[in-house]
Design a protein around this nucleic acid. Structure first.
Lengths: 174, 174
DNA sequence: CCGGAAAGATTTAGGCTTCAAACTTCCGCG
DNA sequence: CGCGGAAGTTTGAAGCCTAAATCTTTCCGG
């Protein structure tokens, strides 16, 4: 999603197309497509800037953020995977790259040799501080089209949507 | 994302964590994390159901949707890539798999041998109809936590957010 | 003490995604 | 005509992601 596909042509996304469609179609579908388009648009731009400014990726950034938040104790791989809401095996790979880059260190836990802790190295901490500051600015910039009141309202509605979806998922998997 | 990671443990996502954070942090960031969490939650569930019910994926479904909407003329690869807002090379691979599965056919264009058209096969059309009906129901179900008024308000706010983000991206790339 | 279930982590196979580099075909201009 | 750039597509390298299988270590009940 990052860059409006290499060909610089006018992007006609699915959402725009559906708006023109025969209509009559479900309102929920239109809402969902817009939500998705909106999230993908912003996420893509953030990914692009992470790559251009810091030569890194969103998953790497997210993992560093988890470790920064976790403090000096660090986190196990499993804990990181739960917090990032991604699979276990996925974290193995991302962590391996960050270790190779010297931003993250693994320390064995003598009390439980299965679970080693992941921690930021000093360099990792410095690097994340730089990235994090830029990231926060980007988000503010990308959401600047909304007034604070809009932001609050959107936050509230998304909260409802999230709980509703969670309930639906919960119910479906019984 | 899709399934609360294989380990069935309680998911503590980044958004929840940030809410607990020292506070004082930017409102935009909280909004963004919630938007992302919400979109990922729903998208993940849709992906999961597509896999379980139809043994397919979201990109495949999206590509079929584009072709269905396009009518009997079909679309070139480039046109599909623009509409799906993904890279050119990406569509090559997805289309190749759909062709191998017999849901999509390529037809050469004698007038321009570079650009062949992609079209649904009869089987592709039938299959998409099945998937599409289920998909629409899923979305309605997952968004059922919102009243129609909530949905309308959310749709409107997301429209503003999208335009604002587009403007910011536009401005940044000048 | 010991045998099996449970937990943490890794591996494997397959798919999606991007960017950048190549390739083919088309088109316009000299 | 013929050549160079533009357009459409493909390929390759790298990374992200999942589900499922596997391996190691721990824990617990008998």
């Amino acid at each position: 999603m990052s860059p409006p596909p290499p060909d610089g042509a006018a992007a006609v996304d699915m959402e725009t197309l559906l708006a023109d469609a025969p209509a009559g179609h479900k309102q929920e579908l239109r809402l969902w497509l817009r939500l998705l388009a909106c999230a993908n648009l912003i996420e893509g731009e953030v990914r692009r800037r992470l790559r251009l400014s810091f030569d890194t990726t969103l998953p790497r950034f997210d993992l560093l953020a988890q470790l920064e938040r976790a403090g000096p104790e660090g986190l196990t791989l499993g804990e990181v995977s739960r917090r990032m809401m991604v699979s276990n095996g996925n974290v193995t790979g991302i962590a391996a790259r960050l270790v190779a880059e010297g931003l993250v260190a693994r320390r064995a836990n003598p009390a439980d040799r299965r679970a080693g802790a992941l921690r930021l190295t000093p360099r990792g901490r410095r690097e994340f501080a730089r990235q994090s500051a830029a990231h926060e600015g980007w988000i503010a910039e990308l959401l600047a089209g909304l007034t604070p009141a809009d932001q609050a309202a959107l936050h509230r509605l998304l909260g409802r949507a999230k709980s509703g979806a969670l309930a639906a998922i919960e119910e479906a998997s019984e």
